[in-house]
Structure formats: structure tokens, C-alpha cells
Amino acid sequence: MVDLSVTLSNVKLDNPIIPASGTFGYGMEFKDFYDINILGSFSMKGTTKEERFGNPTPRIAECTAGLINSVGLQNPGIDFVVEKQFPLMKKYFNKPIIANISGFSIDEYKYCAEKVDKEEQVGIIEINISCPNVHNGGMSFGTEAKSAMEVTKAVKSVTTKPVYMKLTPNVTNIVDIAKACEDGGADGISMINTLLGMRIDLKTRKPIIANKMGGFSGPAIFPVALRMVYQVYEAVKIPIIGMGGISTAKDVIEMMLAGATAVEVGSANLKNPYVCKEIIEALPSEMEKYKIDSLKEIIGKAH
């Protein structure tokens, strides 16, 4: 019997497979199609203080081996999620979830973090710092070491659960940002969010996405994500949840060798809603093939 279990901070997972934020809703759309309790955990749709409609459509553009999205954090707001969605979630998911939250100011991050920190079902709080800071000319919190650290400290000051900072790859040096988060007290790093990209429609000669640009994800970004996880693993001591293009059990093993303790699977769920189940089922034979008895043992072994 191979051992798939891993531990993120104090949260023990049966396996390292976690559907990524924004590609799994709050689990509702998947629960009737397979038993989602086989998952290690799942990261809920990025939730903000206020309810958000998000961006105009088209929000989706296809790419070679991936897609661009500009959903714009559509969500019903943290109060609704905590009051209405969490009690429902408890009925169909009996493991700790990862609460992904976003904000447009430090206060919004604090507000949301404080709320989810009180929820029994939340195992880890994942802070998406790719959002623009409305008090700083719209510059994303995650693109400056200073503001990334500020968010980390602010969230840590109001929470007791492990806080994982989710990094954007759209920076000159992601290692600096990761270190700033660690210095700010982060318990772990989630990486990577989407890469800024765009597509143009040759017939209309205009961008396909209404917002012109959006976040690029899917298998095409796997090598970039892998490289960044590898670099950050060398620079920080806290655990990393690796993501970006993961679609197979092999990708999971590769990402863990680079330094990830667990992985999130995003876009692949959109193409194949059963992909996480299939990866979990394929992992044991894939591990045997590469003579791995326990997944824990391979974390960072490429270094």
C-alpha cells in the first residue's frame, strides 16, 4: 500500500489533490457526480467582502493548452457564503476546506479572514493577493514585497488558522514576494495564480475578452509554475501548495518533486469534471511506477 497522505501546517490530508479556487465553485456542481470526500480538500471560489457581479462577458477565451478567464471574482459576498453556503457545504463535505479570500483593501482582507477563521470547516485560509489595491492606484497587492507583507501581517493579526498567501506570477521576482510573506508570518505559500494574457479575434480584429485581458491557465503554464515552485522552495521554509496546469498524476509527482507539499488542480476541472477523482485513482500505480512508497518523501527531492 502506497501512502498518499500529506500535511499542510497542522492539517492532515488523505491525499494532496485539491481543486483550485474558481474552478470548483463551493463544491455544489461536483458533489452529485462523484463523492468529493475522496479529495484531499478543496479551495472555494475566491470570496470578497461585498457581493460582486464580476466582469462583462465574454469572460473566456480558448488558448492552445489552456484558457484565459476574466471572471473578475464573481461571488455572493463573504457574509452570504458564511451564513448560507457553509452550512450546506458541511452536509456534503466532511473534511476541512480551504477558504480562498480576496480584497481590494487591507480592511477587506481582514474582514473576510476574521469571518472564515471562526468557521469550524475551514482548515486553511488562502489569501489571493492578485487583486488590485484600490488605495494604491490599483496596483496588485501581490506585485510588491512590501504590500504582500502588509496583507500577510494584517490577516495573521486577526486569525488563528494557518494562512497561505497565494502568489501572482506576474512579477519580476516571485522569490522576493514569497520571502516577504514568510517574514510577515505566513504559514504557507499557494502558487501560482494565472498569468496575464490575451487573445484577439481575427474576424472582428478586437480582443475576445470584454475586459481585453485576463488570466491564462491550463497545461501551457505548467513549466512556468513548476519553475517558480522550485525557486520558492529553495528560499522559504514554509510549505507550498503548487498549482498551474496540473492535469495528471504525473504532473502531481513532478510538482511535488519541485517542492510542493500539496497541489491544486484548476482548469483541468473545467475540461473534465472528473479529473481530480481520476488523478487520485491513478496516483498509486503512477507512484509504483516511479518506486514511490510515500508521497511525503518526494517533496522537494528534485533539489
Binding site: 465553485g25 456542481e29 471560489k45 457581479f53 473566456i60 471572471v71 475576445i208 469534471p273
Partner: peptide
Amino acid sequence: EERMGCGIGACMGCTIN
């Protein structure tokens, strides 16, 4: 009709008001 990411309600790619 809208451009879709997943077609199953998971990605919020096809939302209208």
C-alpha cells in the same frame, strides 16, 4: 448563448445579469 469555460456551472465564465 455565451462563451463557456466549463458548461457545468463551475467557473462563472458565462454569467449574465
